[in-house]
Design a protein around this nucleic acid. Structure first.
Lengths: 340, 340
DNA sequence: TTGTAAGCGTTATCAA
DNA sequence: TTGATAACGCTTACAA
């Protein structure tokens, strides 16, 4: 058993302290099970050897990793940053480590990441939104890996969710806009395929239009991926119509910022010439000028509650219960009433 | 060997295909070593069982994880997002997986994360900046884990770096500002303790002042952590002096955005009443109005080159060579010459 | 080209 | 309270 200069193992510590590996393991994991004297001896051996447990070995033996995986659609913009930060703080507090990966909004990539995280021994998974292949849920079920959805609240889906009602939130915002006198509406949405948040936000706009006796057909919809430049391009396209909208509802703040900047480049005043709204209420929404009227999402609260719910599922081995969080409209400068 | 409904193992696949576990392993790792007929049989067994290799077991046996760890100071703002994204794309292309964690600018947290990542079997580590305890470098050395620094280029430090010269970049920007007629300068810097980037940027300002016969004592310095609100507070403080600066150089774009917004709230025009500059050239710098004059950092290029260099170190087991990348000044609206 | 079998560093069961 | 020792699932000499 030659050990030149590689990492010290449990065995090394055991020898140094004159005990068995089992005792060393207990000192580290269930200290109360070992008497003070030996514990001290062992811990000082641990210290002087600079021992750190080998994670892979531990996972294999314990069949448990104290690791939680999260797969988010993107890290490129700040949409998920705050919520994820809160999620990670909470699970850390409870002794878990977070593994994050990004799917770049690609279902195939997401599926691969899920398998990767499960193979890495994740004790549980945080996913964004409900829309994905049924076989993924089967897989998770078979592997008995608890999973939870955030950023969307749909209690009848296969796995529980901690989030908000995207449809109703957008309906509320749209109603407000219509009540301000706008009738020519347009939306710059994220790609709705495979994205329940985007899909339901569009639906929410239509709900409000119906309720206010506007024809849903009058809603111009452009779907594009969530980048500032795309928001700008879409806005340009929308405004080049014969009968351009007086209010453009964006699927999120990032697209809205692109729209605002494009408006300015086109010499349009926001909100005097055209109103623009966002969704999410990330920092960007306050920074852009004019600041965005948007839907506030309780990111940190959602992150924290999701963490608690997921850990609950992991540790109790129980089904897990969904939690709905409230959103509200934040009125800022980018939305103005129509005084004909 | 009961296996109720838990994950299929190599052994299950081997039995299903009528071969040994070694052959299955080879099919997955070195397919060219096994003849077509058996390979096909094995792979179809893999498929029909839905087999995924157990990562922990693989790491233990192979003593190699194809995982690279990165510890960045913060995920809260976008400073590191682009570079890290490029880093991850490049290592992914080469078959590695990225594990990211954030130290929240706390040296103790960073050290813990380093140990955690090493215990998790990371084949290499990406760190930000050079300033840290010498014992960490010892530890990495003993464990023989290759590490590389980014966002800073200092070729004489203990580990190689792929980055840029923070000091010289800031000196260039400052020189330009001085040549525009500004003499009353101030800086809102990140906390310089334990942060070579922040420290060297301040030093760069002083270099330029000396070179232009301004007294370094005339530079007001406020150090604060990298958040928009802190930039705003610091700016307010600076401008409340009897003899306020005509140009405020910020340690990064985030602080600069805070300063710009505070200026506007105080009724000061930027840049007519006061010039403000940033550093990094993240997206925010273009979005804020007025857009920021800032130092452009080649984030994506740096991320990609860092990935290549680190993988090189891992696979060749060689020391690794540092790479310096150029930066340049991006002139936008927030900086104006002093006429009078 | 394929199989055998010895690790890899823990945890956990069972005895002592 | 502690110690032996059998897993855990995979890779990799070495042998066939």
């Amino acid at each position: 058993m030659s050990k030149h200069r590689s990492a010290p193992t449990l065995d090394d510590v055991a020898k140094a302290a004159g005990v068995s590996t089992a005792t060393v393991s207990r000192c580290l994991n269930t200290p109360q099970q070992v008497v003070e004297a030996t514990r001290k001896r062992v811990l000082s051996a641990v210290d002087s050897l600079g021992y750190t447990p080998n994670f892979a070995a531990r996972v294999m033996a314990a069949r448990r990793s104290f690791t939680i995986g999260a797969i988010i659609p993107t890290m490129e913009n700040a949409i998920f940053a705050r919520g994820l930060q809160a999620f990670q703080e909470e699970i850390h507090k409870q002794g878990y480590t977070l593994l994050v990966s990004s799917s770049a909004y690609q279902p195939a990539a997401e599926e691969e990441q899920i398998r990767t995280l499960v193979a890495r021994g994740a004790d549980g998974l945080l996913l964004i939104g409900h829309d994905r292949d049924a076989q993924i849920y089967d897989y998770l079920e078979r592997r008995k890996v608890p999973a939870l959805v955030a950023w969307s609240f749909l209690p009848n889906e296969p796995i529980p969710s901690v989030g908000f009602d995207n449809r109703r939130a957008m309906e509320a915002l749209t109603s407000k806009i219509i009540e301000l006198g706008h009738t020519r509406l347009a939306t710059i949405s994220g790609i709705s395929k495979g994205n329940d948040r985007a899909r339901l936000r569009i639906q929410g706009i239509k709900d409000a239009m119906s309720r206010h006796d506007l024809s849903q057909d009058d809603l111009s919809v452009i779907e594009t991926s969530y980048e500032i430049e795309n928001g700008a391009d879409a806005f340009k396209h929308l405004m080049s119509n014969d009968n351009p909208p007086t209010a453009v509802l964006c699927g999120n703040d990032v697209l809205a910022v692109g729209a605002v900047r494009q408006a300015q480049q086109m010499g349009l005043r926001v909100p005097e010439d055209v109103s623009i709204t966002g969704f999410d209420d990330i920092e960007l929404a306050r920074i852009v000028a004019p600041a965005l009227t948007t839907v506030h999402v309780p990111h940190r609260d959602m992150g924290r509650k999701a963490a608690q719910a997921l850990i609950q599922m992991i540790e109790s081995n129980a089904p897990g219960k969904s939690v709905e969080l409230p959103t509200h409209i934040v009125g800022r400068e980018s939305l103005l009433g129509l005084n004909s």
